[in-house]
Design a binder for these strands. Structure first.
Lengths: 357, 357
DNA sequence: CTGAAAGCGCTTACAG
DNA sequence: CTGAAAGCGCTTACAG
């Protein structure tokens, strides 16, 4: 009973007992339905439904009467009922590892625009970087979504392989999906990495340090690959260490690289670079005169750091937009579209310069 | 037709034609429903429903049979149907002004934990800081949510006043709601501001600059109020300017304050402080020896800036948790709970020191 | 074209 | 206790 009253939106009704402008309930105290409209416009509910859904109606007089009644009664469709009848949820689920990582909100922004334009809602879930929890999260989401977008999923391939059984179209971003029937859109950070290395090599650096990201991450794999090939091409030496994806990681692991006597450091992302920069400040080492630093992502603060960070800019919003496009295609055609790789571009600011001496 | 096939999750079925482990469809090609379970367990659908919802059943044998059948058929409830029947959406909508502002993801994290524990889903909408668009966004959300949380809504009071007609329980964070029947939880940034001013006064500052936030913002009002009262208490002079909420704003508006010859600057938030710090670097003014800087929010990068930023830490996750608690109460009792104000706390790092000279 | 009717999958009074 | 039945609000074949 309690529940039903809440459903009937008692709260605001109670707060304006008699004449309530904007009310969406009829005198029976329940929310307006197409039955109420049909009654008032003296047509069948079929006609109401057709008019309200913009389907062709011959009699414009009828249509007008319906629309008028709907407005007068303050009708707002019951979307749960509509979705139920249509057998859809109109909802797209997104799983991100960590909303607090500035990368993801930008992806979400691009995604949200497109998704709402396509008359869907976006259900965002933060997995807390927990690879174990992700499959459950996805399974749970599957029940209430028409499709799912997995942003840089941390779960292992074996977990990923269990997902098709859920029966929901899935798109992965920044992740290789093997032969799994998932849409797939990523950013070519290997190419971005090559640009970064080329830039440092041109400045004269011969020994570059790399503060690597989580070893299991696909984009980390791509970056390492770009690093290796570019290093070979330019004849520079590389010392890599596994750091992580946070500023704390960069702060903690930088000294190890310094010991190797590198003259430049590339970080897995801007957050890691920020940690490295902080450590360098503590060490009273100047950037870029004593050490060059390059980040990845180009998050908004990157341009405001001391010094402004040279970084590989990733098309985050575009990634979100393309992910929706891929999912949309899959929803329409039932087949997963082919893989897509978006370009990255180095943005040179002031944290890189020729090596000392 | 196209639509229906998608609903039936044709995609993965097609990709594993014969023996598909983990399938959740019966031989008819449709998704398993309680009817399928009832048939297999040889009970009525009422019993299936009761067992699956954990309602008391006398006959444990029956219950076991039902659960077994459900598992064997890979049953997953149709949540849209359930919600429809119950007259709820199990969804809570959240409107944030800008997801890319590091403040909000943290609020969302606190919120998400609680909300999913309460068996609801979270629908997040970014209003793009657009006060005009917010009321429409909320109206749209209202249709598919049991309740709405408005994070620091930018819309004017007059727009806010139209929202009760939507018939959906609403909670506002960091916003005064007047006599509107909304739940209300905020952070006492006036007190936070007083701590910041006291700290600077103790260091010996007599003239403080303030890089103000958006004039319409409630928290900005609170900060100005705290600033005024604390300045009076400590006998310090204040020069305030309206900046905004981004690093660009801080970067642009800092020089104006410098002209006033302040010895310390408090920024509306950390992002603005970061912009100010960047400008000071360009001006080759040292922080804190030549100018002290204080931020607001304590976003994760604050501790890694050069220098690490003294800032007023706001309980962001807790704000999210309390917002859910307020909404939950409202959902249960039908009445908006009383206002709540969470404490803020100054975190002293290295961007503040005694004034030069 | 419009209207009467069926039905989406579930929950829950209501009988038995 | 269990089962048969009604019904949530909508859409959409199906008749007329």
């Amino acid at each position: 009973m309690k529940l039903r009253r809440l459903v009937d939106r008692e709260l605001p009704v109670a707060s304006c007992p008699e004449t309530c402008v904007g009310r969406t309930v009829t005198r029976s105290g329940k929310r307006t339905t197409i039955v109420d409209i049909a009654r008032r416009a003296e047509v069948s509910i079929s006609t109401v439904s057709r008019v309200l859904n913009g389907r062709p109606v011959s009699d414009e007089v009828l249509a007008t009467r319906v629309r008028k009644a709907a407005t007068e009664l303050g009708y707002r469709p019951n979307v749960v009922a509509r979705d139920f009848r249509r057998g859809v949820t109109s909802t797209i689920g997104v799983v991100v590892p960590d909303l607090a990582n500035p990368f993801f909100p930008h992806v979400l922004k691009g995604l949200a625009e497109e998704v709402s334009a396509g008359d869907h809602r976006l259900l965002v879930v933060d997995s807390g970087e927990d690879a174990e929890q992700e499959p459950q999260l996805v399974a749970q989401l599957a029940g209430s979504c028409d499709g799912i977008i997995l942003c840089s999923p941390r779960m292992p391939q074996s977990s990923l392989a269990t997902l098709p059984a859920l029966g929901v179209p899935i798109v992965c971003t920044n992740r290789s999906v093997g032969t799994l029937p998932f849409g797939n859109v990523g950013i070519d950070s290997a190419a971005g990495m090559r640009q970064a290395v080329a830039h440092l090599a041109e400045l004269g650096h011969r020994h570059i340090g790399y503060l690597g990201g989580p070893g299991t991450s696909w984009s980390e794999g791509l970056r390492r690959e770009g690093l290796r090939s570019a290093a070979a091409d330019h004849g520079v030496r590389v010392s890599a260490t596994e750091a992580g994806s946070t500023s704390d990681d960069g702060h903690a692991k930088l000294p190890g690289l310094l010991d190797k006597r590198v003259t430049a450091v590339i970080a897995f992302n801007d957050l890691v670079a920020i940690g490295a920069l902080a450590r360098l400040r503590e060490l009273e080492l100047d950037v870029p005169s004593q050490l060059s630093v390059v980040g990845f992502d180009d998050i908004p603060v990157a341009a405001f750091l001391g010094p402004p960070l040279t970084t590989v800019s990733l098309p985050k919003e575009e990634l979100g937009r393309r992910a929706w496009a891929a999912l949309h295609t899959q929803l329409q055609t039932g087949r997963a579209p082919s893989e897509e790789l978006l370009p990255a571009a180095l943005v040179v600011r002031q944290s890189t310069a020729a090596p000392a001496g």
